[in-house]
Design a protein around this nucleic acid. Sequence first.
DNA 1: AATGAATGAGACTTCATTCAT
DNA 2: CATGAATGAAGTCTCATTCAT
Lengths: 213, 213, 213, 213
Amino acid sequence: MQNKTSSPATESAPAKGVSLSKGERTHANLRRHAAAEFARLGYHNTKVSDIVKATGVSQPTFYCYFESKEMAYEDLMTEFRSRLETLTLTFLIEGEAHAEEVFDRVALSFQQLLDFLAEDPDLTQIGFFQPPGCTATKAGLAELIGQNIAKEQKNGLYRKDISATQMGQCFVGMLDQMARIPGDAQKRKELSLGCATLLCEDIRSGCQPENKR
Amino acid sequence: MQNKTSSPATESAPAKGVSLSKGERTHANLRRHAAAEFARLGYHNTKVSDIVKATGVSQPTFYCYFESKEMAYEDLMTEFRSRLETLTLTFLIEGEAHAEEVFDRVALSFQQLLDFLAEDPDLTQIGFFQPPGCTATKAGLAELIGQNIAKEQKNGLYRKDISATQMGQCFVGMLDQMARIPGDAQKRKELSLGCATLLCEDIRSGCQPENKR
Amino acid sequence: MQNKTSSPATESAPAKGVSLSKGERTHANLRRHAAAEFARLGYHNTKVSDIVKATGVSQPTFYCYFESKEMAYEDLMTEFRSRLETLTLTFLIEGEAHAEEVFDRVALSFQQLLDFLAEDPDLTQIGFFQPPGCTATKAGLAELIGQNIAKEQKNGLYRKDISATQMGQCFVGMLDQMARIPGDAQKRKELSLGCATLLCEDIRSGCQPENKR
Amino acid sequence: MQNKTSSPATESAPAKGVSLSKGERTHANLRRHAAAEFARLGYHNTKVSDIVKATGVSQPTFYCYFESKEMAYEDLMTEFRSRLETLTLTFLIEGEAHAEEVFDRVALSFQQLLDFLAEDPDLTQIGFFQPPGCTATKAGLAELIGQNIAKEQKNGLYRKDISATQMGQCFVGMLDQMARIPGDAQKRKELSLGCATLLCEDIRSGCQPENKR
DNA sequence: AATGAATGAGACTTCATTCAT
DNA sequence: CATGAATGAAGTCTCATTCAT
């Protein structure tokens, strides 16, 4: 996985003209390899010795940049959550919507989230799939989405006989399963449309694709 | 500690008038406490010493009944999966359905699964929530459900513009989130109806609850 | 030091007809060797690996009997202090004294304490000489002795122009130095008489030994 | 962080108008903070990283001025011992004494030593209280004092039924305990008088303070 | 004169697992 | 059937110390 035999270029290259100090490069490299190992093996099966071996530094170096193995893991978790929250807030804060846009907006939310989750698979694994943190991450996401749904319910866009909370949770549950499916951007778009359809339309009469949207 | 001198009666619940041998009782007790600890702390954070302490036996006794800690965990996992499969097959194998029953059948599936998942919380935790096994469990469940949906699609009951596989996965994703919500049977019924509604009906026009079902 | 190559007899022999279980013997052996190593090298320079090597058991065995290296050390410290306190209380609780007995009582106190400190040199090293605990041990002893001196001051046996506290501390200070001098019981008796003389009599006119006592 | 940008003036106390070079200032600062940390925590619990943090320099700088942590400690120890020896020799080399001056001379010795030990508490802690070096320090002091006492015994000023060695040790033992008592110069003077009284006079008849001195 | 960065060596501790009884 | 006692193997973390700049 990852580029274990990455060329020195990717290992330490001062990307984008920003020149990082040697320490910052080491830190970044450690973070990257830590993410890869944690993602691959989980917290408990990952040994600090593996991370440093992959990074090509000695074990004490790890502790120059992370307080402990646990903290390193939490760092990654926190970074994932903060990125996720940023994204979620971004596309939830959009203005008023019209009834006819509901489907599109739902589909777009799915798609943006799926794209995000596919962006950095290691971080996603750690923050979104690995326990025990994943539970809280999803609960937080469901909460945010639920709040937005509640707003839309008040606006009369969504039916009110199902609690916004439940809707949010269902949204996240579907997202969770979809995010595990490998595929490219096109595939993710299709999945997003499918999910939006399931949520927004009748599962039965939908036999005629032309009635979609 | 615990009740080391607990009466065999309470410790081993002589089910159904069948009197178990001392060894069988010990085995059952170990299994029960192992499930409780694994569920509470996860595989890695559970120590064999904790399990035996809770059970009130010595460490070697554990190894009289389980090949290893890992095997004990797998036993529980396997038991959960087999129970789940049994249930799933049961209610999926039912005969032909009519269009007007679709909602009810979906709701009932949710409900039965939720009830099942609430029955033995420790086992559910181990088999359905804890990684890495939970992924496979859910994938298997999604597969089974997907197959059934495929059948229904052929019967013209479900729309065909979404793959049965995806529908199965969404179903499982929603189930996953719902199963984390605490509550009694009544609560689970409500959640089931909500999920069925989300899947089967239009999310928008549903502002009039009377059009439900 | 100690008997590193001690005969099996002394290593595990059920002394005095009391038969200790295997575990108790191991515990005792570990304690003994721990005391020896701690006494020889001090807390920080003593490695658990040394102790278990000397004892002839594996490293985890150490942790069967002691919570940690620190706890093992504290155990020894505590044992020393409790023994010391027992002794001190014993000979301080004696009844009324007459003026002419003062010298003898002081000398006897010195002697008994010196004998005690010579009894188990390792424990003494740990509890009485090694920092940081030794400070508290001595302060406690000085306190006890000071209390007794205060009583005697009230009885008119000791002069009152020096605080009992200070006298107690001086007593302990002298004891401390004396306890470092190697020698047999006879030597300790002489030292005790010397100290009692210094404390009780005039340092100057004493050029005529016959005026002693 | 301490005051990293502290003005050289306060950081290095340009003593006596002598202007020290930057390196000398750094050296002095390191020494001072090293003494403080060693005194506070003892040799083993003091980390080089603590010392340099307190001083506000980097770790390699420490090794510009000290060969090793151990050497730094020994430097301080040596400085203390040499100061102590200087003082001791000073007041021991005084000329002939008369019988009536014995008390005063003993009291003065105590007082001067106590004052000295109170002067630089960190150094005293390191050289006089912390093991294992403190033992040798005290032994050396006892030796010096014992030699002087031996001289006085020959002069007929001190009784001869107690060895000068023992007297010296008792003197040091008392000094040790006294030096642990906090207090100002006045307090130290009182303690000195008390100790001199204990050593020089009868502990019993002393109930009449007027016979003192 | 000083430091950012890195490390060799080793300590303590944990835990699943196994004898011998 | 059950256990007291013991251990192999490993893992995390610490710290004095040193390059290269």
